[in-house]
Design a protein around this nucleic acid. Structure first.
Length: 570
RNA sequence: GCCCCCGUAGCUCAGCAUGGACAGAGCAGAGGUUUCCUAAACCUUUGGCCGCAGGUUCGAAUCCUGCCGGGGGUACCA
């Protein structure tokens, strides 16, 4: 199969070569971009980077290249504007290149084998047992899930680990609180509510009564030493919470390969600490065991508390060792809020100091806070927004809209679930990772404009169009009738899609894909309103259906990669 | 104190990695579109010293330095 983009890149590289510039077709292809505005060609190559070696201003270089280039016959026009080389293809050439390919390959269109044989361990979601699943946990879950699907598309073998927060001093407090104020009745009726109330109460009372901290620590120590009563209570809390989490994950379409939480590494902790002591990698300081680093920026890292109990760091070190031994990952991603950036630098440095070269392949994929108004959500303060409530409201809102707009829709409940969760998921993925998100019900429940439901709506409308067409879409047709600039632009955007998916994998930034899909769908929606897809002209109709079918494929695949369902009607 | 992140339209955000063609969207506001493929849509329109000041460059929202404002982190919470 010929590749017109490669052909043009080669021609451009050759023309530059004759002018005395060393470059390659690959480099030019990488530089190729879609112009910001129509009028600057269908696609463009910026030549600014080559002007230095030639000691000539950009417009002169571009002019010379435009004059001397010998292009494939499919190129209709080349223009040098500023330092850009702008290309126009003959009508339909780009469409013919890309549309049949998409319709044939469907969800394999963006697939690549670059990750073949490489395991990527991913740590995300990690809710805390005995705390409700808040909107804060949603962001890690949604980003992780999307990256999982993207990596899988590129033939990596992702392993999703839900490192449950099921261990730590907080359980001592909770056990103490349950014995003080809790009851079996509450626990069996509304388990999560009951545990959450206890959690808030114990932190509230601890403010006035410092002894509670001591009680909590003591109960946790007993738990860690294997006290059967505490152990049984802990197991019960864990089971109840996990049940609840799994119900929510099912709604979001999220799954995990492992639920090995913090408690899972219990037996590894003692030997690990002993090893760190004996090898001299860690030493006693103020009764705690700490590791120190050469880098003066990195403060000491506590790996065992003064009361001999383990802490987060101990369990993460053990988890890292276990994961490497078990999965032999080539990359390990921790999708955790940026508040823990320093902690992860210490963790990775500690592993490096332990002699693990693979520590270099661990990355903290950080993200900003999810704020509610001006406040940061806090489980302890009780200012958390329950994810379940958010989803429930979004689903209800969807039902209202369906009742108004499409009362004939057969499977209302299923679609409302898909669209409602779609709105919630999209709200988390449509903002760059390192920015804080201001969570507002008003925005999440507003389905107008650039939202998850907007993407889903366009998908459903495309499906409807294809149903109405009633025949298989033909791929072996004359695309020259797709002479409209928007049709060419759409084809060019579709051509970008696989590159976009790879960018997401490199940057771990699903927002880029969300923005891409919005751009694609926005343009198509505008086009759809301006022209008729199905016309009296047979060949034109065939071509426009092919374009529409290709857009549906990419949209459906893109929605999947973001973690949104793509209902066929809504 | 030191370290990290953010600062673009009334609001929420793209664009910054790899500097480049007049800074783009959505929401909110104003006006319009439905005998026609899903109007959860589309079209028109109002609205910007890209936090401030320097520097590098032919060219800076983008890179560098300083400052201001906000947030986070800074040994036994996770």
């Amino acid at each position: 199969m010929t590749d017109i983009f490669a052909d043009i890149a080669r021609s451009t590289a050759e023309a530059l070569g004759r002018l005395g510039v060393e470059t390659s077709a690959e480099e030019i292809k990488r530089l190729m971009q879609l112009p910001a505005k129509p009028g600057f060609g269908q696609f463009a190559v910026p030549l600014f980077g080559f002007t230095k070696t030639l000691c000539q201003p950009p417009p002169v270089v571009a002019g010379k290249v435009a004059d001397t280039i010998s292009c494939p016959a499919t190129v209709q026009k080349i223009e040098a504007v500023g330092g850009f080389l702008n290309f126009w293809e003959q009508p339909g050439i780009i469409a013919a290149e890309v549309l049949p390919k998409i319709v044939h390959m469907r969800d394999r269109y963006a697939a690549a084998d670059e990750g073949m044989g490489q395991v990527v361990v991913m740590d995300y979601s990690h809710p805390n047992i005995a705390k409700p699943f808040g909107v804060g946990h949603l962001r890690s879950t949604v980003i992780g899930n999307s990256l999982y699907r993207v990596l899988e598309k590129l033939s990596y073998k992702p392993v999703a680990i839900n490192h449950l927060g099921d261990w730590g001093t907080q359980f001592g407090k909770l056990i103490y609180a349950f014995r003080q104020w809790g009851s079996e009745e509450q626990l069996s009726v509304q388990p999560i509510r009951a545990l959450y109330d206890l959690y808030v109460r114990v932190h509230e009372e601890a403010k006035y009564n410092p002894e509670l901290e001591e009680h909590g620590r003591a109960e946790f120590k007993k738990l860690e030493d294997g006290d059967p009563d505490n152990r049984a209570l802990w197991q019960r809390f864990r089971d109840l919470s996990l049940q609840e989490f799994n119900r929510i994950y099912a709604r979001l379409g999220v799954g995990f390969d492992s639920y090995a939480g913090e408690a899972f590494y219990n037996e590894h902790l003692g030997p690990l600490i002993k090893r760190l002591q004996e090898t001299g990698l860690a030493h006693e300081s103020e009764n705690a065991l700490v590791m120190e680093f050469d880098d003066p920026q990195l403060p000491a890292f506590v790996v065992r508390k003064a009361d001999d109990a383990s802490l987060y760091a101990t369990r993460d070190l053990a988890a890292a060792e276990y994961r490497y031994k078990t999965y032999h990952f080539s990359r390990a991603l921790y999708i955790v809020g940026s508040a823990q950036a320093l902690y992860f630098r210490q963790l990775f440095a500690a592993l490096k100091k332990m002699g693990y070269a693979w520590a270099d392949h661990m990355e903290h994929i950080e993200f900003g806070w999810v704020k509610f108004g001006t406040e940061i959500m806090s489980t302890r303060k009780g200012t958390v927004v329950f994810l379940d409530d958010v989803i429930e409201q979004a689903v209800q809102r969807t039902k209202d809209i369906i009742a108004e707009k499409n009362p004939e829709l057969p499977n209302v409940d299923e679609v409302a679930e898909q669209v409602g969760t779609g709105a919630v998921v999209f709200s988390q993925i449509a903002v760059r990772r390192n920015k804080d998100i201001v969570f507002s019900f008003e925005d999440v429940l507003n389905f107008d404009g650039h939202t998850g439901p907007f993407l889903q709506y366009n998908h459903a409308r495309l499906c409807s169009l294809l149903r109405k067409y009633g025949r298989p879409v033909e791929t072996d047709i004359d695309c020259a009738v797709l002479a409209d600039p928007e049709e060419t632009r759409l084809a060019l955007l579709l051509h970008e899609y696989p590159r976009m998916v790879q960018t997401v994998a490199e940057t771990c930034e699903p927002m880029t894909l969300a923005a891409y899909l919005i751009e694609l769908v926005d343009l198509y929606s505008s086009y759809y309103h301006r022209v008729r897809i199905m016309t009296d002209d047979e060949s034109l109709t065939r071509a426009r259906m092919l374009l529409s079918a290709a857009i549906r494929e990419v949209l459906r695949d893109g929605l999947y990669l973001l973690g949104l369902a793509a209902p066929e009607q809504m």
